[in-house]
Structures are given as structure tokens and as C-alpha cells.
């Protein structure tokens, strides 16, 4: 393998000869990033195409390509709840040509799934993209119009009250359990394979409540079949159906657990990459079309510095650990 300290000199030498084609021979292990980016950059979406992650990645990739002058290519690497795709970035060289776009579930691998990825050490936080408040959703037929009425309804029943969630330890599961912890409300969780199934059972009256992002239920809420009792925090996206925040509804402490999306690099990504990438992403987050894309998915852009983003990751990791302690769930196995 070429010594990375020597290699740049050779590259510049060749470049000075006008041998542009020599670039294609450049191995990935170039440590310097002075000319970053000088070839196409990959953004890994660790899920299948079509979902919010993918839509965000594609709308950002267009703007980043124009802004930074190199194609930004979205690559879908689904599997193992995002772990497969995340791992492909963790194991990539820290040269700024492979990024990961992922929600806060990256903080759950370690504590909830017992998969070997520490979100505070194995990745470099590059930029936070957006946050989406969770919403507490019930059927319109349910005789409760506020959070407090719901608690009274659930506690006053002979029968069990059920909440639905997708994925053990996912944000919506964490939110429901946190709500149960904070209010002491009597309810049981039911696991589902997809949010569509949860919505079906909520509409059919088999389930009583779910905690989800606004986008998953917007259609039914607008049609008056489901209603939102509260948002977990204040920054609800423009165009979201009106509802108070949990704090306003008398339940404090729900705001820290929230869905966000961010861009990560492999551990040890140099500031020569992180700084311009963070700046470019934050510029893209000001674009009207991007803001609109996020709003349609119930999310609000949150331009942050890498340091502020690192703090958000730390808080998500703590939230996942608190969930595991409260529920006593045994992590994945591995």
C-alpha cells in the first residue's frame, strides 16, 4: 500500500502533467482532503428506497452535487434495521467519499439490538438535517380529546388498553414507554411489522393509541378518522394538524426523545471534510424545495454545527439506554 504521506505528492505531480485519468487509479486511502471533493461522493441510505430517509437523501444529493461540484450518489443498503448500511460506512476509509444518512435509531444499535456500533465513537457526526416531533394519535371514535382524558380513559377501564408500535426499541416504542413511565398510565404494547398495520388496527378500534410521526397518519387525520392529542415537542412542521405539546398537556419530559435525521462519516473524519460538508448541508437546508420536502414528511430542518449534532446523538444514546432499563428488554442476542 502506498504511504498516504507520499502519495499526495505523486498525485499532484501527475495532475500537473495533465494526466487526469491517473485519478481513477487513486486508491481510496488518501488521507488528505484538501481538494475534497474531487470525485463522486456516496450517501448511504440504510433502508430501501421510497421512505422518508431516501426522499431526504435524494433531495439533498441534488443540491450538494450543484454546490460542491461533484456528483453525490444515493446508495440504498437495507438490512438488519439499518445496521448493514451503517456498517458499510463505519468500515469505509475516513476520506469523505462515503457518508451515512440515518435517523436517531443509530443510537439504538448498541443498547437495544446488541449490535456492535457505538454511535458516540464509531461514526463522525457531520450534520443534523431535521427533527420530527412525535405525535400521540388515537381513533376519532375514542372518547378522549386530550392527553389527560386519555389517561383517565385508560386507567378507568376494565379491559386492557393497547398501544401499537413497529420495531422493538424504535423511537415510537421508546416514546410510548416513556409516556407510560412519566404518567403511570395502564397500557400494553403490541408489536407490528409496519406502520400501515398499526393504522389499520387503530382505525378498526383494536388498538387505542400510537406514537408516530405526523406523516404516517396525516391522511387519516385530515379525513377526520384519527386525531392527534399532542405533539412530543414544539417544533411541529408547518401544515401539521393543530394540537398542543405534551408539556402544555401536562406531561413534562417527553421532548428529549425525538426523531431526527443526520449525516455521519466514518470515525476520524478530518475537519477538512466535516467543515465544508456541514456548511454545504446547512446551506441546502435553507432551500425552499428541501424545506418543503421535509415539511411533507412532518419534519423541520435543523441546521446545526457538528458539535451540537454530537450532543443530540449523546442524548439519543442516553434515551435508548433509559428505555432498555425501564422495560427490561433483553438486547438482541448477537
Amino acid at each position: 500500500m502506498l504511504d498516504p504521506k507520499i502519495f499526495p505528492t505523486r498525485r499532484r505531480f501527475l495532475a500537473s502533467l495533465g494526466a487526469a485519468s491517473a485519478l481513477s487509479m487513486a486508491p481510496a486511502h488518501r488521507a488528505l482532503a484538501a481538494g475534497w471533493p474531487d470525485r463522486p461522493v456516496t450517501i448511504v441510505v440504510p433502508y430501501g428506497p421510497g421512505a422518508s430517509n431516501d426522499i431526504f437523501a435524494r433531495s439533498l444529493a441534488d443540491l450538494l452535487s450543484k454546490d460542491l461540484g461533484q456528483p453525490f450518489v444515493v446508495e440504498n443498503r437495507p438490512g438488519a434495521g439499518g445496521f448493514t448500511g451503517a456498517l458499510s460506512v463505519v468500515n469505509a476509509p475516513a476520506d469523505g467519499y462515503r457518508f451515512l444518512l440515518m435517523p436517531n435509531s443509530i443510537a439504538s444499535f448498541d443498547s437495544v439490538m446488541a449490535l456492535d456500533l457505538d454511535a458516540t465513537a464509531d461514526v463522525t457526526p457531520v450534520a443534523q438535517l431535521a427533527t420530527a416531533p412525535g405525535s400521540m394519535v388515537v381513533s376519532s371514535a375514542l372518547p378522549a380529546n386530550t392527553v389527560q382524558e386519555f389517561i383517565a380513559f385508560a386507567n378507568g377501564r376494565e379491559e386492557d388498553t393497547f398501544y401499537g408500535y413497529v420495531g422493538v426499541g424504535a423511537t415510537q416504542h421508546q416514546l410510548a414507554e416513556k409516556f407510560r413511565k412519566l404518567t403511570g398510565v395502564k397500557m400494553k404494547g403490541v408489536n407490528y411489522q409496519g406502520s400501515a398495520e398499526v393504522t389499520t388496527d387503530l382505525l378498526a378500534g383494536r388498538l387505542h393509541v400510537q406514537f408516530s410521526t405526523v406523516s404516517a397518519v396525516r391522511g387519516q387525520v385530515e379525513a377526520g378518522e384519527l386525531k392527534i392529542l399532542a405533539y412530543t415537542n414544539a417544533s411541529s412542521a408547518p401544515g401539521s394538524p393543530p394540537a398542543p405539546t405534551m408539556a402544555e398537556a401536562g406531561v413534562a419530559g417527553m421532548a428529549e426523545t425525538q426523531v431526527w435525521w443526520g449525516i455521519f462519516g466514518p470515525a476520524g473524519l478530518p475537519p477538512e471534510v466535516v467543515t465544508p460538508m456541514n456548511a454545504a448541508v446547512n446551506r441546502a437546508l435553507g432551500d425552499a424545495a428541501v424545506i418543503d420536502t421535509f415539511a411533507k414528511n412532518g419534519a423541520v430542518p435543523t441546521p446545526r454545527s457538528p458539535e451540537e449534532f454530537a450532543a443530540a446523538i449523546g442524548s439519543a444514546v442516553a434515551s435508548a439506554k433509559e428505555f432498555v432499563e425501564f422495560t427490561g428488554i433483553v438486547p438482541g442476542g448477537g
Partner: peptide, 20 residues
């Protein structure tokens, strides 16, 4: 794959690729 209720992996033989 993954047990739907507990989130435990089963019959994955240590391959995380089999968790789905």
C-alpha cells in the same frame, strides 16, 4: 430472523445479515 416481540435474534448463527 428477529423475534417480533422481544427483539431477540434467533437462528441467525451470528450473522447480523440474517436478523431480517
Amino acid at each position: 430472523g428477529t423475534d417480533t416481540d422481544s427483539g431477540m435474534f434467533r437462528y441467525t448463527l451470528g450473522f447480523y445479515q440474517l436478523s431480517d
